[in-house]
Amino acid sequence: MATDDRLLESHGSEIKMTEFYAPARQTRASAPIVPASSVTGRSLTVVVAIMCFLSCLTAGFVYLLNQSAAAWFADIASEVTVQIQPIENTDTEKRLGQVALYLAKQPGISSVKPLSERDSAELLEPWLGQTEALSVLPVPRLIALQIDRRAPPDMAVLARNIEDSFQGVTLDDHRFWQAQIQTVTRSLGLGGIAVLILMGAATTAIIVSATKSALTSNREIVEVLHFVGATDTFIAREFEKHFLALGIRAGLTGALFATIIFILLPALIRLVGGNVVTAAEIRRLIGNASLDPPGYILLAIVVIIIAALCMITSRYGVYRILNSRQ
């Protein structure tokens, strides 16, 4: 020990704390251990932004369709029609009045509106055009009923009572159309969800591939981290931070472009929507084509999902790869 005592004596300075001051900005305690540029390049950001943009568009359009469908459904559900078939040698106009009077006395009906012959003819115009032949055809007469939504009548009982009380009179509660709308809405909704799932799967595949590349290009860093005692959890967190930032950045970019599209959509429809009838059809399909606040919240949810997908996929990707290297 004499040797090392001499050695210690030969060096004046002991390992003591000095007054050295390290400015915080220079110590960069939070400097990323894994450089962001080696994990998430610009092209990856662009790809994820495009996926988010398409996902936001899909989610937004499905939302618009659902909103329109809900509006149709509400309209149809609150209005029913009574149809009076013409019967030979009877006064249809008189029968119309009798049925209207009967209906006005029934509970749960807020208004009764008999349609004139002209109104009925106008309803057929889109299919038959303007023709004098309508006046000689036995066109059924209609009575439009507004249902009191707070206390709606039992439709089955009402239909049976009408048919029992009047010959050739039927009640159409639009169930067929309601079922059609529900089918169409559900189909479009499921289609939209399927597209979103595919987008999510594609984004996941892209992130898995990017995680592999990131781990390969940062192999040396991962080794050093293991050597200084880093757990796989710590290493995965270092990578997932970058992927989360990528997800948020790309997600917001995609959602921003989708928002611009939805803001401009009404004007775009007017510009490229063709004639008045086409524009009217598009309006019928997706309403006024502008998202309401819940619609924009939906886009924000898409961004959150994309960012979470990026983070979680990269985390498990890193775990899987590190485990396979054991």
């Binding site: 050093v224 981290l225 200084v228």
Partner: peptide, 13 residues
């Protein structure tokens, strides 16, 4: 990483 950050790495980990 700077020399300081390299040396601090085991503590950060």
């Amino acid at each position: 990483l700077t020399t300081w950050e390299n040396v601090a790495l085991p503590l950060r980990v």
